[in-house]
Design a protein around this nucleic acid. Structure first.
Lengths: 125, 125
DNA sequence: AGTGGGTACTAACCAACGGGAAGTATGCCG
DNA sequence: CGGCATACTTCCCGTTGGTTAGTACCCACT
């Protein structure tokens, strides 16, 4: 009983190779904070540093800086720094980031819908 | 410019709360090995321990055991152990696991399709 | 004139988590 | 009787992430 098998066609040997470039991208994107940042930016509105800190509740400043740096390097996020004082920096999704966020969104919706039930099962196990 | 906003409706304050149950589920499911195991099982076929080790290339035995334990506790994976010698254990997705895998699949497809280009950008940055 | 505060980070330290290799239980087969 | 096969568990150590503090800059207030 198959659900949808485009993956199986791409991986004829059914193995996710260790050296595959997707591993690196997966690590960046599916990381705890990377996911939350992408989702926070997901509605397309640019956000500032402090706003991101508030949305991804619990993120440390170090982790936010690090996460943003890799997301910018990967071309998911655009960093727009205005040379004013006090500093004003806006972060927004690139087209590539928007594509990814569109995939992440339904997943997050499913997780928040099912999380309580799942944790209940886990607790009683 | 919005892509799809069911999430915004569920989070009126646009904040992903630190204590939200979804955080725990996200940590389990989006973890490096959790993701690969779910995807490996994604075609619905039950797999044995050694087969999972081969598909999620690079996973250590310790991490595979740990990952499977949390996925079973969360009700994503079914563990079917036959009391024979040598031991024979089969892992398969529960209906809940199948739902999740169906969401994870398109994401993984996108990532493998775009990973080379993304890493190229990251390298030249 | 000085001092405190807000913004966007960086640096140093430390605990915790993940990875590697080896050990364990059980029975069959040579 | 000893090695092998499967499915794990245990121990040790390195990397990773978290916490706290510090930096640079200028404005506003006293």
């Amino acid at each position: 009983m198959k659900v949808s098998t485009p993956l199986a066609e791409r991986f004829p040997d059914a193995v996710f190779a260790a050296g595959c470039p997707s591993r690196t991208v997966l690590d960046h994107v599916m990381s705890k904070w990377g996911l939350l940042v992408l989702l926070s930016l997901g509605d397309g509105e640019p956000l500032r540093w402090s706003e991101l800190r508030r949305r991804a509740e619990g993120v440390s400043e170090k982790m936010l800086a690090q996460t943003l740096r890799t997301l910018v390097a990967d071309g998911f996020v655009l960093r727009d720094a205005r040379p004013v004082v006090p500093p004003h920096v806006e972060y927004s999704l690139t087209p590539r980031g928007l594509e990814l966020a569109a995939l992440l969104n339904p997943l997050m919706v499913w997780v928040v819908d099912n999380a309580p039930e799942i944790l209940e099962d886990a607790a009683s196990a």
